[in-house]
Design a protein around this nucleic acid. Structure first.
Lengths: 222, 222
DNA sequence: CCCACTTTGTGAAAGATTTCGCAAGGAGCG
DNA sequence: CGCTCCTTGCGAAATCTTTCACAAAGTGGG
């Protein structure tokens, strides 16, 4: 099974199936069909079956999938049955929002260090984690064996921080700064860019305004 | 030109071309080729030309694109040459991070109201915007003519809030809660789900670990 | 056991997106 | 002007992703 040729869309859907399965599990359901899983996840049932088929056969014909079993399978496929050590850089609003989002910890993403360059915040404690000067980033990330670096700095600092993270040996970077980062190809990089989301929404709104203006014009004609 | 059959990936890339063009403009460049624009945006030059071609011909052969002109064109295509009125629901960490991200305002996304259900925060002021009880959401959104609702609540409250927003007549919703929202199809909906991003990163890390383990095994054999 | 019904897993078809390749337009130089 | 060097715009090809459609398995009732 070539993990590398699994499409990004499939991976993102697997992640969302996880959430649906957790919910079904809480509801006490034992079995679920691809149809129901699909409805809850907002995709087609064929899509669900195809996504799962890349990794094996987890269901039983006529019955569906065993909820806890499938959840465990997907968790294991996605590497969610372990703890990932994360370092957060940037103790501003975004950093604080991420840090206090306890759901991440519950899912195995553990923030073990926080860095910032502002003397005013260095030394502060968030829960039991002390904000350190970004100068200590490389040795501290090495010492703690951090897997994932989270960039939550302003755009202008982001590349520099990413370079330090790479130097320190992280395996992956999650970037919240609205700029493209250059990293060696063996480092996994994901971007969360809220500007892109807002602007795409703007495009969609403009598109639907245009549509309804046309529609109105037609009704007036009639 | 059918705006509705433009792919989501194209729209997202247009948004990122905007950022590159703004940067080029600040650097004082007059002209840019699809090649350079592509490099800076991390895509292929054919992709840039194709994306633009859906909307018209903005370049000159042999010369490239005029930077301020192309920026204006894309802004106009995406509906960024106007102000969108936004209402933020959820005055927690994520809401606060979004509100204080002034780049949004600069780009024309103006938060004109904030709602929360916790008596402890209702009445507080963020800059010159007072947090209101979510009970006032519908009339206030109507009164202010809000275009975009931003859901920054815990997952369990998200659908209820979205329903209120729809009732109040927003045109689009940006959802930060990690759950699928149901909205009428004429409402544009975009989701920002940080859990999916982190989990996709986890998948990628696992995939590359598997690869390097194999590689190592091969070197040992040799 | 038979029949009606359900559901998976998966090739093959359809559809969507990206890349290729090149004609045609334009700049610059001698 | 003639020649070289760029670059766009775009149809066509290649690639990637989703949907279709159905055989094969499984359940349950009589």
């Amino acid at each position: 099974m070539k993990l590398s040729r699994i499409s990004d869309s499939t991976v993102r859907r697997l992640s969302s199936y996880c959430r649906v399965l957790e919910e079904l599990d809480r509801e006490g359901r034992r079995m679920v069909s691809s149809k129901r899983l699909a409805e809850r996840g907002g995709v087609s049932s064929a899509q669900v079956r195809k996504d799962l088929s890349y990794f094996g056969s987890f269901g039983r014909r006529g019955l569906g999938y065993n909820v806890p079993r499938l959840l465990e399978e997907i968790r294991s496929i996605m590497g969610l049955n372990r703890t990932w050590r994360c370092a957060l850089v940037g103790a501003g609003h975004i950093g604080s929002a991420l840090f206090s989002y306890h759901d991440f910890r519950r899912r195995g993403f553990d923030v073990v260090a926080i860095f910032d360059n502002a003397e005013a915040v260095v030394g502060q404690k968030w829960e039991d984690c002390e904000i350190q000067n970004v100068k200590k980033l490389v040795p501290e990330i090495r010492r703690l064996g951090v897997d994932i670096g989270i960039v939550a700095t302003p755009a202008r600092a982001a590349q520099e921080v990413a370079d330090l993270m790479v130097e320190a040996g992280v395996s992956g970077i999650l970037n919240f700064a609205p700029r493209k980062l250059e990293v060696p190809k063996e480092i996994s990089l994901r971007n969360v860019n809220m500007t892109i989301e807002l602007e795409s929404l703007s495009f969609a709104l403009r598109a639907s305004e245009t549509r309804s203006r046309k529609k109105r014009a037609v009704s007036v004609d009639e």
